[in-house]
Design a protein around this nucleic acid. Structure first.
Lengths: 244, 244
DNA sequence: CGAAACGTTGAATGGTTTCAACAAGAGTGG
DNA sequence: CCACTCTTGTTGAAACCATTCAACGTTTCG
């Protein structure tokens, strides 16, 4: 079987670990319980208990937290190949909500499925924990961006990071990528107002760096954008840990 | 042996799981390799490879990331009982730096020690992963704070969260706690300028909510502060997962 | 067709930063 | 022991980045 024939998750993990046929089989079996969710309706709501985890196979999801005053902070976006709710399984309660941005397909993974898979193939367990650590590193980088970058750099960094992530599952390149997010999503993710997001996007467009329009991100000057963002993809480029 | 006779880590884990004598023994053995570090000099520098992890037994540490333009974002503070660098072990390279804020004592934990301990007592492994998930939840809450809270609420929330964490290891109460941080630390953690931190602290003090002075945080009106911060400690109060 | 969601733009406001200056205490070396 | 420097804290004034408010255009969809 070629890598392309598999799910985005397998494609992602394969970029870092050469998986054996047996491991590929276990991974395939994790994808058995297929489910779909419609855009806009929360799949998991913050405070909900005893949740399953999911592997996203198509579509986009965002994980977010709502505050008492109604403002929303998007913590992360999930794209095909990403795990979703891994932490909610370990803590018994989910501390944030998940909302599908478009209609999505996902494989439901019960706690027992996951533990069984880990018991069968420790190398796979390590690979998945590696992916989880990489997600955590992205949240940290997100934190740094919101705390210490101005709006332009923040936006530029965000669009670049998303591009790198999508490239890993074959959904983007240094030319650009399809992106179903609205300016409201960007605002809630970057800690800005929707109005300001619009202005920032205009400025980046008029500087011939990127265009965000009609569900498509187009890079016009990738290098220039990297400079604006001070984008260093080191935290995404980790090679596999403990795996020879 | 009573809980008080043990390390802060044991004290923390004991608040959520009743540990057996055998598990306590394994934990004690993880504390064998004692080391000290002096204030101000990085124990781990971002980009450094093949790092050990540490269990902090006394003193305070901060983990941070420096950007190209020299600005610093503190991601988290570690207090006694906290793990440090657990992720750096899994990813081969550390993506951020650790700096002791005061002279500290820590137990060095080699990757092999950790894996051995996990193999011996799966319940302990779960407990430690639970603690790691809790740390991640705090980073997420931190992200929300920087993205969507104004400076006053951010500061109030931060001081309250720290208080709750310290209370768990017996170093603080709703009256207050000792705190070796400078206003610069607060600024770098909260994504503010040091000047503004000073003003915010003054305002909170003049509203008779908290005083931050001479290495001591004193709560004057705990309830009032909770209101300002919209502090909901749910994400800290998880009861243990998968452990009956 | 009307409503709802998304995008766009201008003007006024405001929270936060920057710049600048000074005070107090700790540590250092002459 | 004093002068010196360094770190930390403090305060005012000006400048700025981002928000809020408000209005309007566009597209989608029932």
């Amino acid at each position: 079987m070629t890598v392309e024939a598999h799910s985005p998750l397998i494609r992602k993990l394969s970029a870092f670990v050469a998986l054996s046929e047996a491991e590929l089989g276990v991974l395939d079996r994790l994808h058995r319980r297929r489910r779909t969710f419609v855009a806009g309706r929360d799949m998991v709501h913050q405070g909900q208990s005893d949740q399953a985890a999911y592997i996203l196979s198509s579509g986009w999801v965002c994980s977010y937290k709502i505050q008492a005053d109604g403002t929303r902070q998007i913590v992360d976006f999930q794209i095909p190949g990403d795990f979703l709710g891994l932490r909610s399984v370990l803590l018994r309660t989910s501390d944030h909500s998940f909302e599908p941005i478009v209609n999505i397909e996902a494989a439901e993974v019960l706690t027992s499925d996951l533990l069984d898979a880990f018991a069968q193939t420790p190398r796979l367990a390590t690979a998945i924990l590696w992916a989880a650590s990489r997600d955590e590193a992205m949240v940290v980088e997100h934190l740094v961006g919101i705390g210490r970058r101005d709006a332009d750099a923040r936006m530029a960094h965000f669009l670049l990071e998303l591009g790198s992530r999508l490239a890993l599952v074959g959904m983007g390149s240094k030319k650009g990528y399809d992106c179903p997010l609205t300016q409201y999503h960007l605002a809630d993710a970057l800690g800005l107002s929707a109005v300001h997001v619009n202005r920032v996007l205009r400025q980046l467009r008029e500087s011939d760096l990127v265009t965000f329009r009609d569900g498509r991100v187009t890079f016009h000057d990738y290098g220039g954008l990297v400079d604006v963002a001070e984008f260093d993809p080191a935290y995404l480029d980790q090679t596999g840990p403990l795996l020879k």
